[in-house]
């Protein structure tokens, strides 16, 4: 590879006409870090951009048409907000939105609290910590299709382990997934089982970045263990909490696989029907493509309402 000085010297020898100057600059530009690094980031960026932003744009366009059924493709001559009006007037959209919010709030809150509790327990210098952490995190390595099968069996009315356990306390048996009153709670419980290991790992990473001498100092001051955590340690886990909460909330918004796999069909029980399952059903079972696209846009806006403040917060913290 020739170095830039040669080129500059070369062009001066020819005489500094304007064309040469322009040519030199072009050569310099072609050797700049921008051009040389371009293929590295632009190829993946354009592939991703086409899929994500091209997809979102196209989805928005389809949501403005009346595209449905098995015809060749959408008709773009008559664009309107009809599908959004239909969605707002559809009581089922409101039911599923309500379920989405219940799932999001309850699932995120309990998973975070349990994850924090487990992280504090494992951080207390116990033996075999690595092995215990591995088991707690194991559900996270499994597919929702797989864990849904396990929980379907756990919740079985006649032979499931959950009814065996509550039977020890003289309760039940309950029809955990057949009873509309219980089904959402049962699904949330299973999802907490799968995700609390994740929350724990995030909090553990946060706890381990806090120096030990803060515990020592609190001890010297005579603070109890509980007070030390409440006043000194937990406030420092804010950044871990925000990250974990965002990941969990986004998951709750798009949770589809677990519900589909547990009930084995697009139509899940009313109590567990969320926007994510409604959208996929409208599109791939009922072929209401435009309507499904409109629901997907609503879902996307909800996700952006979580992501945008998060990225802003991360940027302000200087951790981007």
């Amino acid at each position: 590879m020739s170095n830039p000085q040669d080129t500059v010297a070369g062009s001066q020898a020819v005489g500094g006409t304007e064309t040469d100057d322009w040519r030199t600059r072009l050569v310099e530009f072609s050797k700049s870090d921008f051009v040389r690094s371009f293929p590295f980031w632009f190829v993946p960026f354009s592939i991703m951009g086409l899929g994500v932003y091209g997809g979102i744009g196209y989805n928005t366009l389809i949501s403005l048409t009346d595209y449905e059924g098995f015809n060749e493709g959408p008709d773009y001559t008559n664009l309107d907000l009809g599908m959004y009006v239909q969605a707002v007037n559809d009581p089922w959209v409101w039911t599923t939105s309500k379920n989405t919010f219940v799932l999001l709030i309850v699932f995120t809150t309990i998973t975070m609290l349990l994850g924090l509790f487990l992280a504090i327990m494992l951080d207390r210098g116990i033996r075999y910590r690595e092995k215990i952490q591995t088991i707690y995190l194991l559900p996270m390595a499994l597919s929702f299709v797989v864990t849904a099968q396990f929980w379907l069996w756990m919740y079985n009315v006649n032979n499931g382990l959950v009814n065996t356990v509550v039977g020890l306390f003289g309760l039940g048996p309950y029809n955990w997934i057949g009873d509309p009153q219980l089904v959402l709670g049962s699904v949330i419980f299973a999802l907490i089982w799968q995700f609390s290991g994740y929350a724990m790992v995030v909090f553990l990473a946060g706890l381990q970045s806090i120096p030990d001498d803060q515990f020592e100092a609190a001890k010297v001051d005579g603070a109890s263990v509980f007070k030390t955590y409440w006043r000194v340690i937990i406030p420092q886990l804010k950044s871990s909490s925000v990250s974990a909460a965002v990941v969990l909330m986004i998951f709750a918004l798009k949770a589809f696989t677990f519900l589909f796999s547990m009930f084995g069909q697009y139509r899940v029980p009313k109590g567990t029907d969320i926007l994510a399952t409604l959208m996929v059903r409208e599109a791939f079972k009922l072929q209401n493509w435009a309507y499904a696209a409109a629901i997907a846009t609503i879902l996307l806006l909800m996700a952006l309402a979580v992501i945008a403040p998060y990225l802003h917060y991360q940027h302000k913290q200087g951790s981007l």
Partner: peptide, 28 residues
């Protein structure tokens, strides 16, 4: 930084938001 933010949003979007275009793309 702008490119980075575009990548980050790509991590979090619900795939439902691209499913209809995706199936239309691969089929039609």
């Amino acid at each position: 930084f702008a490119v980075l933010v575009l990548f980050l949003v790509g991590i979090f979007i619900p795939y439902q938001a691209v499913l209809v275009p995706l199936s239309d793309f691969w089929i039609n």
